[in-house]
Amino acid sequence: MGQSQMFARPAVLVVEDEPLLRMMAVDLVEDAGFEAIEAANADEAIKILECRSDIRVVFTDIDMPGSMDGLLLAAAVRDRWPPIEIILTSGHVHISEVEVPLGGVFFSKPYDHSALTQTLQSMATIEGH
């Protein structure tokens, strides 16, 4: 709205169906210096992506109810918004069983906050160049 693009913090879309976990993820994203945008499922995330162009990173849980899980969402993001970075997380699947989309990063739940923060920051830096 009134704010200048120059000072806007990069935006991270947090997609997580479990409210407590979403709350924690949002805090983490904000503490890392980003604007956090929340979505409770993949359909909501797609709607947000369709009307916002400032999202740099999608940070999504894999196991979610609804028509799309996190992997399908990641595939859609890779397909429709190729520049957006993808971070996947799950308590269900192991990294060896996940087909992480090109350039995507996977964190097993419960995830390491400092490692995730570093990943977010390096993604935003690379994006900035």
């Binding site: 479990e18 407590l20 924690m24 196991d63 269900h92 739940k109 419960p110």
Partner: peptide, 24 residues
């Protein structure tokens, strides 16, 4: 086993979230 593992790991994540919030 997989289902139990999933639930346990989700529970651990929620414990983590509660602790993070509580000690914020």
């Amino acid at each position: 086993n997989r289902e139990l593992s999933h639930r346990l790991k989700n529970t651990l994540s929620i414990v983590q979230a509660i602790a993070t919030q509580t000690l914020r």
